[in-house]
Design a protein around this nucleic acid. Structure first.
Lengths: 128, 128
DNA sequence: GTTTGACTTCAACTTATGTTGAAGTTTTAG
DNA sequence: CTAAAACTTCAACATAAGTTGAAGTCAAAC
């Protein structure tokens, strides 16, 4: 009854880079930053799980939202440190990302409001 | 018939910093970056015009939109290099800022769309 | 078993947006 | 005039998010 999908470490740095759309150096950077984790071969090479590509895709979406690596690290604590996340965990993460996105949208709407109330942009020289 | 408002250089770095809400070092940085210009006293000290506080306020709004100093420099080319901008010039700038803001909002809306079409966040393991 | 292509670590470099501090000069108040 | 406050330039530091390259090690194919 063991799962057929091998989730154990088998993905190399460059595999993961290819699968997730970031560079190999970024993959290493994310591991150094604690956004992803890797097992090591006896020879000390990194081995990721297939699910890590998912994790990196989440990182990329979060970056589009405007979150920093530090913020993203916090967000990813919604997922388990080990093994595949449950649907519920993914949902919680998704929800958090949606909320962050809406926050940024609200900030931009404030900017639009400020831009419209002209005098806030800058007190225009009053017409004579 | 000369104007009563003295627009000629009379504002020091720290005056401008106070009036615009940024630090003195930021004021110098913006001048170095070409976002604002200053005349110099015989002793080589910077002297800004009162209108420069406006310019810096625009810079700050533009930063809230997410524009870089480089982008902002381009934007500010909508204003005259010298003297007070006309209402039309301010309007053009405001319009450009609104457009940029809307662009960012659209980008965030794309993120929201991606977040909603779950499989884009990451292909969730299909429920058995 | 050896070669070739990945992989490892680590330090230095990059861009952006400033801040901080040193050493020296101007301005201003008295 | 002179002393204090503010100004000048310039170089170094700070943080974010990586990239690049050197020197050495590992894995895979033949």
């Amino acid at each position: 009854m063991s799962s057929t999908t091998e989730t154990r470490a088998s993905v190399t740095v460059s595999d993961l880079a290819r699968d997730s759309g970031v560079s190999a150096s970024a993959v290493r950077f994310y591991e150094d930053s604690g956004l992803i984790t890797a097992e090591r071969t006896p020879g000390n090479q990194r081995r990721f799980t297939p699910g890590d590509a998912c994790r990196i895709k989440v990182i990329r979406v979060a970056q589009r939202v405007g979150l920093s690596v530090h913020d993203i690290k916090t967000l990813l604590e919604l997922l388990p440190e080990t093994g595949e996340p449950t649907i519920e965990q993914w949902s919680a993460l998704q929800k958090a990302l949606v909320q962050e996105t809406n926050k940024r949208v609200r900030e931009l709407n404030l900017v639009l409001a400020d831009l419209s109330s002209d005098t806030k942009l800058c007190a225009l020289t009053p017409l004579t």
